[in-house]
Amino acid sequence: MISANVRFVGRFSLEFAQTVGRCCLMFWRTVWGKPHDKLFPLFIEQIFQLGILSLPIILTSGLFIGMVLSLQGYYVLVDYAAEESLGSMVALSLLRELGPVVGALLFAGRAGSALTAEIGLMQSTEQLASMEMMAVSPLKRVIAPRFFAGIVTLPMLTLFFNVIAIWGGYLIGVSWKGVDGGAYWSVMQGSVEYMPDVFNGVIKSVVFAVLITWVALYNGYYVVPNAQGISKSTTQTVVVSSLLVLGMDFILTVFMFGT
């Protein structure tokens, strides 16, 4: 009984170490050395695939989250006759937490899963192997542009998310509930600071982007080459990257806003 547990722990730690090792090695081989000649056009194409195509879901969710946030905030604040501070509440919670985190979770579901499925299918139909045999490195040709595009895209999507959510908050708070429009904006201006709020939010979403994109690419690259393997990898991408985002968010928040 005990020996079975010990064996389980042993095997688990070995597998974990192996995964981390492979992950780092793959990362190193992707970003180190001479980049692919057409890196830039490939990168732009991926910006379209990951970014532009994720815009609809990001914008819709942003709008609704902003509206709900504003409505709930209004109901609480109005009891204390503090509904003038609605703008500050909406903007701060979005910029610091909700924007980066919800944006990242949506990105993991929309773009991360697509990346894993795409790379996984290429791997299991030997397309990556045949690329290797044509002396083209799949890490440089396929993985690297997607990785860089992911890092650039998520922070931009997060900014769009924040903007439209703040506008959604305005719609509910000002246009519907009748909070004074001038107060909504000026309180927001007074309380939001550039470095701690806006900039820290962007840093967060860059970190999340690295995590999600890399988990997605790794899971696709080391897929078990069959239909079930692809579906398992895709699920794993969404689950692992979402958990990593939430865990990392806590750590970053402690460091950024702790003092």
Binding site: T125, E126, Q127, S130, M133, A135, S137
Partner: peptide, 23 residues
């Protein structure tokens, strides 16, 4: 090294059993 391997591969063609075309 990787570079030597890639140079050697430029001189090899391989026809995969599955074809492995880019879809």
């Amino acid at each position: 090294s990787d570079k030597e391997l890639y140079d050697a591969r430029k001189k090899m063609g391989m026809l995969f059993q599955s074809g492995a075309l880019f879809n």
